[in-house]
Design a protein around this nucleic acid. Sequence first.
DNA 1: AGGGTTTGTTGATTCGAATCAACAAAGAGC
DNA 2: GCTCTTTGTTGATTCGAATCAACAAACCCT
Lengths: 351, 351
Amino acid sequence: MTRSQSKDAQPESRPTTRRPTTYDVARLAGVAQSTVSYVLNDNRTVTLPQETRDRVWEAAQQLGYRPNAAAASLRRGRTNTIGLISDEIATTPFAGKMIKGAQDYAWANQKLLTIINTDGDHTLTDAAITMMLERRVEGVIYAAMHHQQVTLPATLRETPAVLLDCYSQDGSLASVTPDEIAGGRTATDYIINKGHRRIGFINLQPDLPAATGRLAGYQAALAGGGIPFDPALVVNGNSRADSGYTLTQQLLNLPVPPTAIFCGNDNIAMGAYDAVRDRGLRIPDDVGIVGFDNQEIIAAYLRPALTTLELPHYAMGQWAVQYLFGQFDHASDAPPAQVHLPCRLIERASV
Amino acid sequence: MTRSQSKDAQPESRPTTRRPTTYDVARLAGVAQSTVSYVLNDNRTVTLPQETRDRVWEAAQQLGYRPNAAAASLRRGRTNTIGLISDEIATTPFAGKMIKGAQDYAWANQKLLTIINTDGDHTLTDAAITMMLERRVEGVIYAAMHHQQVTLPATLRETPAVLLDCYSQDGSLASVTPDEIAGGRTATDYIINKGHRRIGFINLQPDLPAATGRLAGYQAALAGGGIPFDPALVVNGNSRADSGYTLTQQLLNLPVPPTAIFCGNDNIAMGAYDAVRDRGLRIPDDVGIVGFDNQEIIAAYLRPALTTLELPHYAMGQWAVQYLFGQFDHASDAPPAQVHLPCRLIERASV
DNA sequence: AGGGTTTGTTGATTCGAATCAACAAAGAGC
DNA sequence: GCTCTTTGTTGATTCGAATCAACAAACCCT
């Protein structure tokens, strides 16, 4: 005999001994397969003496039995899986938080989160959705790593879905995004409360929802503080440090320069620090700075540490999963929710 | 009739109309289920006229048919899935790169990467492995986000596995880690080539593999350059900017201070920048600085931009998947590979 | 024209676990 | 002693797709 295994010749690729099935367990325990199934699932609708249950458990243990999820899914019709499609994962620290928020919540509810990263490539995105549909995920989270409007792949309609950190024009799908307006307001209110009346704002590129929202919040805060809005104090950067540097200089060159600057993100703030310093001014004494994003690595280590706002990535990820669960339970006919979660102010020492 | 659906009353939770199966497609196309299977899998071992094939495709199209991955997996005995268990995901920018490296490669080979994040919690890790085993992943990547030694969960033996950015004491599993020694050498060689002879080294905590490796590389480079090793020039930091600040001051206070400093990571380098600047010295003219990690967000925006080394996260992720594939194909009896991948020098302007 | 192929196609079986329906054995009630 | 339950347990079926074995019809050759 050249083969030591049983007659059913496996294709060459499987040298590992076949995993035991419920039948194997049944044989060892001296019961029927159905009994094994009842025991291992702790099904109490059938009455079985503890002695039998113990015997089955022990047999399973002994064989190193592991249920086959595919078989169970097929039979039960549910996969306990939800998909997350993200446009980016490697280049931003936000991805991790969002994913973690989603995964923690999913996991706590016995669901597995299957993540596919697409780099924003449309073909890949379609392929990803297809794969998820074939795997019969119970829902899909479609995530962007920077708050933006997206156009929905048509296939996304084939399953419950939520948009995470993005939204569709037609509002046909539920979405969670940061409350940019409140964020802008929080930041500006804080600066005002610190006694500033002339507040510069280095915003992000004007076409971003983050930019328009925060500007609205900035203006609302000024209005609330009885401070007239001066367009000269608002400039748009490109979200990188160098533009923060240049634009800060520009603001400081104003006839009446600002005494505090609200930066559209922490990179810009980093550039602002340099500009302020190069000018021989001091933070926060001469110029106050507030950032946005709370990129720990920057904000916590700038000197002085940067006061900034934290985007609700974790909470958004969590909300997305929670929303999907809600969809499973009661197929609500209500229009899809468009939720905005608040950005928290992280107070440090720069204002 | 109170129910519009067919007789088989579904449990309440599934209001969505059942997805079509191969049988539905077969009925519509007027062929047998088996024929549908042959056509949709483009199985050429059976001869079927193009006309039939077209008819089946069209029927599938029309019904919006999607294969059921669970059913196919069950029958075929392969899931085309590999698992990745990571101890951290949210708090480091490395996670994304490693995951992306793994996923890109997996995806290019028609495999889905299923990621579970455990926060280093042992219970969660065990649960994650169990879940992966039940889903019959074809292999598992066990990843750490900071190069370290790990103790292997026993269950990991039940499936092919690779260690990513970590290793086990007994070397029983293949692993990929950064080549810290070469990294330390590369950095130091570079500094020497820039003409420096007195080179400080602010290392990480001494118990880390990254620290011991880089120190060895540092010493090897000195030896290669005919420069005597001076223990006073080597100090250990805690990997954060503040320790970089303090230790840089300490080094600059030496009777014969270094003219360049190799920092164990970019955070330390960031602190070093501040210390050098506060002392009224200039980078790179008075003191050269080299970092480690290439945290874009820091390195690219420090002024002057920081010359640093990049950890091979992406490549390691990719290697891990590739290695697993190798395991599938030929169950090699060779001892598990322990691979070290090189760290690339990113030259900017700080030396 | 008859045997041998090739071409198309199908019915039956299988993967592993979950369930349903059925049924023997043991108690319960009178 | 005889129904009626309850208690344990099992055989058969199902989920959806992949395959194997079988077979009718058409074609090919001498």
